[in-house]
């Protein structure tokens, strides 16, 4: 029984690790702020969920499990609000998102200040 729990924990936490690395990779690699917010959202949601569920399976104390679940709930409530505030603030400040050029109805993404970074 313990072995099964251990294996499930390993799977969950390793998946969480892979997601975290992909998140960090995305933060460095993606081209503009709005797409980076999507990448950051991965760490906020599924990676947190997987790692903390993995920890919860390993704890034998009910209070510890409850606290882990509370952290998950707090992060799930606060992170979209922070992301929205960030996206809204940068949109109001006039930061143009880079849009896809292949779509026919989308406007061209060739902003004059795009190549400066």
């Amino acid at each position: 029984m313990d072995l099964v729990l251990d294996i499930i924990t390993w799977i969950l936490m390793l998946t969480g690790c892979v997601l975290l690395i992909i998140t960090g990779f995305g933060l460095l690699r993606l081209p503009d702020l709005y797409t980076r917010i999507h990448a950051g959202g991965m760490a906020d949601t599924l990676a947190t969920f997987l790692i903390f569920i993995g920890l919860a399976l390993q704890s034998d104390d009910f209070l510890v499990t409850a606290k882990l679940l509370m952290v998950i709930v707090f992060v799930f409530f606060t992170s979209p609000t922070a992301s929205y505030a960030l996206a809204h603030a940068s949109f109001v400040a006039g930061l143009k998102p880079m849009l896809d050029t292949t779509g026919s109805d989308q406007r061209d993404s060739a902003d004059p200040d795009e190549g400066k970074d």
Partner: peptide, 11 residues
């Protein structure tokens, strides 16, 4: 996991 988190933080 701790190492993965640290790498991610570094990125």
């Amino acid at each position: 996991t701790a190492i993965a988190i640290l790498v991610s933080i570094a990125m």
